[in-house]
Design a protein around this nucleic acid. Structure first.
Lengths: 206, 206
DNA sequence: GATAAATGAACGAATGTTCGTTCATAATTT
DNA sequence: AAATTATGAACGAACATTCGTTCATTTATC
């Protein structure tokens, strides 16, 4: 009796495909899109070079699919914004989560690589822009709620403030990787403080 | 009598070298570091491929030198910070200048490319970090002056505030290229407004 | 004449992709 | 149920091109 569950071929194929995609992600993070060869990816995935092309039409298809991966993660981040009734508490949770996620070395590296690719590759640019727009809109909605209740008197325009908050978070994340030794290292606390200063939020418990 | 001024060979060689460097910069901006070949650069510069290697030891040397180019530009930007006695006026001028410079398509593209390269190339990372550190220190100095005179009551820590201001400016610059159609487009006015909100600066003339 | 700059061919390795063949699985026929 | 056929996953070799770099020779400058 085999201990392995029998999967239909189509499931095995899909799992193999995702496995290859994961290997590609790792290679791209380590080497960048254009310094990674398809042979690198095939080797990392443990499949033949020919078979790699069986699953993906080409390198471009891999790059675009990697660029599109981020959307799923954003769903989780945005949930906190939607479910928490207190706008300031929702903002607090969001900043902590989005920053923690963004500050991961791998996320920083991949984000910058995707940005560099977006500049020259329209399908990548589209994914990147859609993700950001989605995030900014959800955040702007919460900031508007905060402004309406008077709990963030510094908010002058919700959409602008949302963009600025995201810039602050993302800039801080980049700094953790690109500027490791600096006079003002980016931490969750410093970023929260900055966001609160921007929005005129009264600081609660330290 | 030749109308052209006669230059010693060493000057001609240096001009040729700078010309090649300029061609490389253009190619790198258009195609990225690793999608640009040395043949592309030689052709763009109008020199032979072999001669390119006469002036630069290799592709790596070109990339590093391009990454180091930014330092000269920073001098001009920082002058305004030093010469203007009123800290808030100095900040205003700096934000306008640094943003105008950063928002140029070419600057955005090159900055992102350098960031992506910095992640994997220590000499590039060093130049990048030095430039940023220099800028942040100069800005922090002015913000400290503003805080000391009470004209920016939102400043809680000059070094942190300086980093946040730079993040806002740079994030806004990236957005102008990567997110062209957005609910809150980045302009000089929106960025100034954001920085003023962050630092608690009273807005002067609109 | 000596040195430096410039050239274009050449080198060996690497790239993204394709190809002919084999094998495993699924579907169909007997 | 067994045999046959069809399908597509997988492989490794091959393809055509490109890459970064070097080199022997030529040209230009001092």
């Amino acid at each position: 009796m085999s201990t392995k569950q029998k999967l239909p071929r189509s499931d095995k194929t899909e799992l193999r495909r995702l496995h290859i995609l994961d290997a590609a992600l790792t290679c791209f993070i380590q080497q960048g899109f254009h310094q990674t060869s398809m042979r690198d990816i095939a080797m990392a995935a443990g499949v033949s070079l020919g078979n790699l092309y069986n699953h993906f039409s080409g390198k471009e298809a891999l790059i675009i699919e990697i660029a599109a991966l981020e959307a799923a993660e954003l769903q989780l981040l945005i949930e906190g914004l939607r479910t928490e009734p207190d706008a300031i508490a929702a903002l607090d949770v969001f900043v902590r989560r989005y920053l923690a996620n963004s500050m991961q070395q791998e996320t920083v590296v991949l984000t910058i690589e995707v940005m560099a690719e977006a500049v020259r590759n329209p399908p990548v640019a589209q994914h990147f822009a859609e993700n950001r727009r989605y995030l900014a809109a959800a955040l702007a909605h919460v900031l508007q709620r905060a402004a309406d209740t008077g709990s963030a008197p510094g908010i002058w325009q919700a959409a602008e403030a949302a963009e600025a908050v995201l810039d602050i978070i993302e800039g801080a994340a980049f700094r953790t990787v690109l500027l490791p030794a600096t006079a003002a290292p980016a931490t969750v606390e410093t970023v929260l403080r900055t966001v609160q200063a921007l929005l005129g939020v009264r600081s609660r418990h330290a």
